[in-house]
Simulated assay, not measured.
Amino acid sequence: MARDGVVVSFFIPHDHRTVAQECWRALQTYFRAIPPQSLNWYGADDGDVLELDADGWDVTRKKMLDCTWALAWHIGLSDLPGGTGGYQFEYHGLNLDNPIHGAPATAISFTFPTEYLLEQGPQRMRALVLELARELPFHFGYASFALVSRDGSWTAGDWKLLEKYSARYLGVDLSTSADIGYVIGTHALGAHWLTFLGLPLLDRLGGADALRQALPFPEVSFLPMEQERLLLTLSEWPEAIDIEQAPIPPQYRALACFLKPFMYESGEDGIGRYLDRWRRRLCP
């Protein structure tokens, strides 16, 4: 149902029709960076999974750039038909004016197998993530170790195993960009190896100066970006945060506690409550 990897996700408080070109360019950047033949399948509107050949790319481009009348635009590309090989792209563009969407944001995510990080190293990986982010007018984004699965299908796995795993490895994200995009509004999702902050969230946090005061750790770097955006890097490598081996790194805990009042919370029972608690795992 899932495998280890790195997820890169951004949440954009703008309508699909406003940001489609920027998101398409980010997809092209991702495609150039990953090995050849890493994306081979795409999800059709009828739920089938089809080969991503030249015609498939044309369908994807037209859906992302030319279709302007829908209520939502969902695109999923993957290396394997089941979507658990490590390389995946998801785009969930929304019409933010539609009243059926509670507090939506356009969501875009890219995944990589852990082997890609080990081969490239953290500096090259960070540079690639930064390139993906440059044109996106996000309010929140992150890169993190994660359980990589198709459309959050890790939820269909063994829950006892999942709970044991997630309780031990606090730095491993449970990615659900499709579902969270409908409800995140302009909230945060916690502290990660690379944490991206933009407007209006960054203003609500007090700006870059407030973050520098809250994170006086030598491991943390601050990179201002154009359009009043900020990249926080919390450690040289992403941290799995195995609490059986070492405590939570203090800079991760500090950022998690700083973001806590601004984090998304579903307030629902069942899996909603479980994920609300899990998102606050670094600062209960």
Rank of each mutant, 00 (worst) to 15 (best):
A2T: 10
R3Q: 10
V8R: 06
F10Q: 02
F10S: 04
D15N: 11
H16M: 14
T18S: 08
A20S: 06
C23N: 10
C23R: 01
R25M: 08
Q28V: 06
S38N: 03
D46F: 10
D46V: 12
G47W: 04
D48N: 10
V49T: 10
L52K: 05
L52M: 09
V59Q: 04
R61L: 07
K63H: 10
K63V: 10
K63Q: 12
M64R: 11
A70E: 07
L71K: 14
L71E: 04
A72F: 02
H74S: 15
G76F: 00
L77W: 06
G82V: 03
G82H: 01
G83N: 05
G83H: 02
G86L: 10
E90A: 15
E90S: 13
Y91E: 10
H92K: 15
P104G: 08
A105K: 04
A107V: 09
I108Q: 07
S109W: 01
F110L: 04
F110Y: 02
A127G: 08
V129Q: 08
L132W: 07
A133P: 01
A133S: 10
E135R: 00
F138R: 00
H139Y: 09
A143W: 00
S144L: 07
F145W: 10
L147A: 11
T155R: 15
G157Q: 02
G157W: 05
W159E: 06
E163C: 11
S166Y: 09
Y169L: 15
L170W: 00
L170Y: 00
G171N: 09
V172D: 07
S177I: 12
S177K: 02
D179C: 09
I180D: 08
A191C: 08
W193N: 09
L194P: 02
F196A: 13
L201Y: 05
D203R: 12
D203P: 09
D203N: 11
D203I: 13
D203Q: 09
R204D: 12
A208E: 12
L211E: 11
R212D: 11
L215I: 01
P218T: 06
F222I: 05
L223A: 07
R229K: 09
L231R: 04
L231E: 00
L232R: 06
T233D: 01
L234N: 00
S235L: 11
I243Q: 02
Q245D: 14
P247I: 06
I248D: 03
E265C: 15
E268Y: 12
D269P: 05
G272M: 14
R273L: 15
L275F: 15
R279E: 14
L282H: 01
C283G: 12
